[in-house]
Design a protein around this nucleic acid. Structure first.
Lengths: 220, 220
DNA sequence: CGCGTCATTGATGTGCATCAAGTGGTGTGG
DNA sequence: CCACACCACTTGATGCACATCAATGACGCG
């Protein structure tokens, strides 16, 4: 959150993020079509967001963890356009968007903060488009693991060990692969000594190898 | 643009969008890594935006036409993270982002407008992720054509006829396909009487057929 | 303990990529 | 004004990465 605020401003931001809401595993925080009122900041837990076609296919558009913001999709049409589902019991701060807009007219640093959050989401999605549009299965999974572990590390967790909160199918949906392909690719990484996998526990043994997959050296 | 403003506010917005810049075909408006200063509103012309990996692959992340905003990717890190290239001679309004933030603290409707624009971009990218992650070639191209023609129609152009400003390769990059596949899929549509194609001129003969491809009827 | 969910692994199929050849339209310089 | 070169596009032949179908195995929970 922004710094360099006076007490009154801090108090107002405190009010803004006052309300909490608990969401149990497999429950939705919001759903496609629901009226948009608030943004949500994750305090604890882990979410996925996904969009669906009318014929039932769906696509995971992201996985969110503590500190990240959800609900930005709802601003444009006053209604949410995707589902947010808790992958483990979670708690969020409910931040009424009207209040956010009001307060960010007074507090410049909050205003800029909001803009950055939205821009960051746009840039993240560019990365996913690159992944979905031009990478092979191994590269996708490598990029996915590196991204996850990096975000977890920024939150004080291990650089090399993680627990997947989502199923192989959800990983596959996010990466544009079928669950069998995700599973096989994990197995391949294990054979090559790049990772250890035991169900949803993953230990990364060779970060450099993963990075090489994502960013192959140009051959001359 | 927002409505219900008084004269002073209108004047300020006029100042904001005062500067113009011309960009010739194949020139860049901005480039990955450049310092971010302004957002750009397209007055005339047609752009693509694309991101690149270090090993040379690149991914077109979008095509932009008159009235659309570019540069939102630059906000988060104060530097652009993609390239914007004119596909035909173009003119844009240069809107210094600092001024936008300043003015949108005063003018509520401008503030909300900015938020909507960013949210719209996020939702659009969700749609592209769905396309890249779960659609087959025909569905992708159908969705692409429908989206283009719909945006052109909103600008007063034909509902059924359009001129592609981009190459097959650029379409392919956007849709996660190779240019040969794009070409073959066009040919298939022609065989089926769904469209007429003559180079970059496309006439849509059967919109419903395209919509059916994008949203296949559920079989019971 | 038994059932349901999730994951792994194998066999086979297919949609798209790759490689390659040829066509047509466009722009340029002689 | 034409010849040539270049680029975008089309179309065919072949290959491969991933999907699909199917069977089995491992947890975890009531």
């Amino acid at each position: 959150m922004p710094v360099g605020l006076n007490d009154i401003e801090l108090q107002k931001i405190d009010d803004l993020i006052g309300t909490r809401r608990k969401v149990k595993r497999n429950e939705t925080l919001f759903r496609n079509g629901e009226k948009f009122v608030s943004l949500y900041a994750i305090r604890t837990g882990f979410f996925k967001t996904c969009v669906a076609t009318e014929d039932g296919r769906d696509q995971v558009t992201g996985f969110q963890m503590a500190g990240e913001i959800m609900g930005l999709d709802g601003i444009v049409n006053d209604h949410h356009s995707c589902d947010a589902v808790a992958l483990e019991d979670a708690e969020v701060c409910v931040m009424p968007f009207e209040k956010i807009e009001e307060l960010s007219r007074e507090v410049t640093s909050l205003q800029h903060h909001i803009h950055k959050i939205m821009s960051r989401e746009i840039v993240r999605e560019h990365g996913v488009m690159l992944l979905l549009g031009s990478m092979r299965a191994e590269e996708r999974l490598a990029a996915f693991l590196l991204n996850l572990v990096q975000r977890l590390h920024a939150r004080g967790f291990s650089q090399s060990e993680l627990i997947l909160r989502m199923t192989r199918e959800e990983i596959g949906s996010y990466l544009g692969l079928k669950l069998e392909t995700v599973s096989r690719t994990f197995s391949k990484f294990v054979e090559e000594g790049i990772v250890e996998v035991k169900q949803r526990h993953v230990r990364i043994l060779d970060t450099a190898a993963l990075q090489n997959l994502v960013n192959p050296q140009v051959c001359h």
